[in-house]
Design a protein around this nucleic acid. Structure first.
Lengths: 209, 209
DNA sequence: CGGACCATACCAACCGGTTTGTATTTCACC
DNA sequence: GGTGAAATACAAACCGGTTGGTATGGTCCG
């Protein structure tokens, strides 16, 4: 396999350029509103090449949302990266990561999985199932964190880690949706603060000063 | 104004049929995927008539989402309809109403405002602002409920009614999104139960049995 | 009869996808 | 190690179908 430095004829990189372009465009204008030709222009690739790498728009949509989801999963696992840390502290770290994601400069805080779900879930079973799987992956990671923390601090208040994970996941998706619509990302940060306090309260039994 | 029973020549009803058809179709497949011809077919109206009543697809979209939002507002105000009731009880009533909305038979629990926001907020300022206004209206109603309840039960824990209102609004939108994607409405009900317990906790100071 | 209402035919632009053709790698085989 | 053919990667023109929107003419009612 050659070093493949030349600009021309680098299939893997061309493919990735198409995927990146798709993610970028869909985040900005949704899936239906994004045309194959726009993707090609953004990736500086012709339509012939596009359909050489992907057999349909649906296929690149499925793979692109997979790329985005993998990026999200990397963020989630970063929260677990602190070796042997208190799981509750890892949860706090996760909230910090999410706030950081919200406050990236020049990058709107939007989720491709949420956008594609909202747009395609009703009509395209393939894309719906892909999104469903990614959401489940994320919820599972949060559930794991909560379950570990619950095992460590077996707080008085009983709660179901899975349900709380879906609760937080829903809140996160809804926050991004509303922040985008109001064009005010501060709502996400406020919601995350409230959510953090809520999670903390789950681990604090009734007794308190 | 005639009784307007005849099938032909009833402009107000024709107009409403178009709006209803638009709401129904957009709820099922989103705005971009809904064509003007589909709307006409669903309302048994020809395209000529359509463009007589609405000057563009965007316009009927804006008005249709307004219809949907008005329906939502009616649900919210139903929570306040109990005369002179404890505002905290009205909040509980609101949760019941939302659970009822979730469990309507044969009707998927989806929100046209959320769907249009997700799809159009990035590209269409007119529709974005319309959705933004409807979300703000809803949040304001919830804020009013919370503020009243806070005044009545001035619970120990301080909280900002507006922020909690947006928190609940975000959770609601995200719950519908995720339930649709997973094809499992029970997630909404679970989230509402957790949210209800959370709101209750806001009004219960630390002392407790 | 005049304007609001509705129906038909039509259009230019666009979209996802195909066809066809060309350039570049890859690699079996000598 | 060279070489030629097959496989791969890219390009451009094109196509059938669809879309939002229009032009125009008929119809109903005050």
């Amino acid at each position: 396999m050659k070093p493949a430095v030349k600009g021309t004829r680098n299939p893997a990189e061309t493919r990735q350029r198409l995927l990146d372009a798709t993610v970028r465009l869909v985040l900005g204008q949704g899936f239906n509103a994004t045309t194959v030709e726009q993707i090609c222009a953004e990736a500086t690739v012709t339509k012939g090449s596009f359909f050489h790498h992907f057999k349909s728009k649906e296929e690149i949509g499925r793979e692109a949302v997979g790329c985005f989801a993998a990026m999200g999963t990397r963020l989630y696992s970063e929260a677990r990266s602190i070796p042997d840390a208190d799981p509750l502290e890892q949860i706090h770290h996760l909230f910090d990561i999410m706030i950081g994601f919200t406050q990236r400069p020049d990058e709107p805080c939007v989720c491709m999985v949420g956008m594609m779900s909202q747009e395609m879930a009703g009509t395209n079973p393939v894309l719906r199932e892909a999104c469903s799987g990614h959401l489940a992956d994320w919820a599972e990671m949060v559930r794991g964190l909560l379950a570990d923390a619950w095992q460590r601090h077996g707080a008085g208040g009983e709660f179901d880690p899975a349900r709380v994970a879906w609760f937080l996941n829903s809140l996160w998706q809804g926050s991004m949706l509303i922040a985008k619509t109001l064009q005010d990302p501060s709502i996400i940060v406020e919601n995350l603060r409230l959510a953090r306090a809520y999670v903390d309260s789950l681990f604090q039994p009734e007794f308190r000063s």
